[in-house]
Structures are given as structure tokens and as C-alpha cells.
Amino acid sequence: MSDKFFNKPFRLSSLFSGNGIQSTDLGKSISNHIELIIFTRYGEHRYQQNFGCEIWDLDFELIVSESIWEEKFRKSLLKSITDHELRIYNMSVDIHIAEVENVYPMRKITEIKKKVDISVRALIKATGEKYFFNTALFLSPLST
């Protein structure tokens, strides 16, 4: 495995100007890859149809039970990370969904969104160090 990791997004302008591509450390590279897994829909990657996660199919699903929805998404994400991010092991994925209400009094608009908090804990194979990834997504904008 290479010891050189590249930052995303790639800045092609710096490459063409002769400065090369900006590199990053192992932890940031793993985080970038996990973000890519989260934001990719199954079937979107032409050569790896199983790359991605189920969030795109679950986004428009009517949420009858938040705990069932969280567990479905957690299992999907855990499987994808286990299959595609080979630099970490002993993973746990936590998903929590909550409603967030934004009120815009000047425009007389209330916006309700679903916020999904995603946490991944693991160990890095190369060093044995603890690894932690955390992000939040907003789904289903509802406005009045």
C-alpha cells in the first residue's frame, strides 16, 4: 500500500501549474474515503456497482420507525466501509436521526429537516491507533 495519500478535492490547476497534487495524512485519507462511500449511491460507480451506501434509497422512504431506519442505514454503511476501506478494522458505526427546525421570521418560513449524525470508530491497521470519524447530513427539507 502506498505511503502517499492525496487530499480531495483534487486541484487540477495546481497539477497543471507544476505544483503537484496536495497530499494528506492517513487519517484524513480514510475520512475522505468514508465520505465518498456515504455520498455515493449504489450503482453509481461504473466498475464497482456495490460501492456506496443505502442513504440515497432511504432518503425518500417514509420513516415509520426511526430506530429501524437508523439500523438499516447503519448496517448498509458498516458493510460498505468493511468491504471498501481496508485500512481500518474493528469498526463500529453509530447513526442517530433527529428533527431540526429552522425558523426564518423575516421570510415567515419554518423549515424542518432530518439531521443524521454518523460516527465511525475503528483502529488503523498500519499503526494500531484509534480512528474516529464524525459527520452530519440533512435530509428531507420540509418548508412552510
Rank of each mutant, 00 (worst) to 15 (best):
S2C: 02
F6N: 03
N7L: 10
N7G: 12
K8W: 14
P9N: 00
F10M: 11
F10K: 08
R11Y: 06
R11I: 11
S14C: 03
S14G: 03
S14D: 15
L15F: 14
F16C: 13
F16D: 08
S17C: 08
S17I: 07
G20T: 02
S23L: 11
T24G: 00
L26N: 00
G27Y: 00
G27I: 08
G27E: 06
K28H: 01
K28T: 03
S29N: 10
S31R: 02
S31L: 00
H33R: 05
I34C: 03
I34S: 02
E35W: 05
L36D: 11
I38V: 13
F39P: 00
T40N: 04
T40A: 05
R41M: 14
G43A: 09
E44M: 05
H45E: 15
R46Q: 15
R46I: 08
Y47M: 12
Y47G: 09
Q49A: 15
N50E: 14
F51H: 10
F51G: 02
E54L: 12
E54H: 08
I55D: 07
L58A: 04
L58I: 06
L58V: 13
D59W: 09
D59V: 14
F60W: 11
E61D: 10
I63D: 12
V64L: 15
V64W: 08
I68T: 14
E71N: 10
R74A: 01
R74D: 05
R74I: 08
L78Y: 13
L78H: 10
L78V: 02
K79Y: 08
S80V: 05
I88A: 10
Y89N: 13
M91T: 15
I95D: 06
I95L: 09
I95H: 02
I95S: 02
A98M: 11
E99Y: 12
E101Q: 11
N102W: 04
V103L: 11
Y104D: 14
M106W: 03
M106Y: 11
R107S: 15
K108H: 14
T110S: 11
T110G: 01
E111A: 08
E111D: 09
K113T: 06
K113R: 15
K115N: 09
V116L: 05
D117I: 06
I118A: 02
V120D: 04
V120I: 13
R121N: 12
A122G: 08
A122E: 03
A122D: 01
L123R: 12
L123V: 09
L123H: 13
L123M: 09
L123I: 12
I124N: 01
K125T: 12
K125M: 05
A126N: 06
T127G: 03
G128Y: 07
G128S: 09
E129Q: 11
E129K: 09
K130P: 06
Y131S: 03
F132R: 06
A136M: 04
A136C: 05
L137Q: 03
F138Y: 10
F138L: 09
F138N: 07
L139M: 07
S143W: 04
T144K: 02
